[in-house]
Amino acid sequence: MKRREFILFPAKALGGAVLYSLVGELISADAEDRVKVPLRFFTEEEAKIIQAAAARIIPTDECGPGATEAGVVVYIDRQLASGYGTDKYRYTKGPWVEADETIFGYQGRSTPQDTYRAGIGLLGKDFTALSPEEQDRRLEKLERTRFFQMLRDHCVEGLMCDPMHKGNKNMVGWKLIGYPGPQLSYIAEMEAYPGKAYRVAPQSLSQILGHPVKPVEDETKPIL
């Protein structure tokens, strides 16, 4: 059986116990107050490489938190371990042919899991040891690859998704832009805020509904 893999985060950056009870997995802080998040798809080494790349795509900077604080790598790990990662939502019958992708879409056999494994190889085992500038140069070389485009989109998803997907931790992404979360009604606000910012502290879906909500990637029953 596969060895259990974890990624370490500073406990403070991850927002504490309440959030982690939502993960539904055993989390404990170590002596240096770091928490171990169990990984479902990545190895620890892979997770660190993706985390480093995500931190260049959406950096932590003077504008505020980025992919690291949002926990984007955990979001991606969960997505890749789900049916999406193994193409349970894509037609995968042959024959496989080459065709103009601008008309027919991607016709290759790579699943998102395959694409990441290959992409991590392109980033290189030494990626985490590079300087930010060197990391940017390596990412620039990959900009046109399917892997990079997927990673870039997943970073935005992991920053802006509902926290039930394990990204957007503490709703740092929503706070960056002032998105209030999935409110049930804007009847009063529509008329009260014409051309004026409606920016309230965000609430996640489970906070608004008052009960936990299970995302598709946590479903245990097979999709097909």
Partner: peptide
């Protein structure tokens, strides 16, 4: 539907047909 006030699950397959089961083919 209340529990689907979210973008990610809708982005993956949502309320749509799953192309893994059936899709169409196209030629110009």
């Amino acid at each position: 539907y209340v529990e689907e006030m979210d973008e990610i699950d809708i982005l993956r397959v949502g309320l749509g047909q799953n192309p893994a089961e059936q899709t169409i083919t196209l030629r110009n």
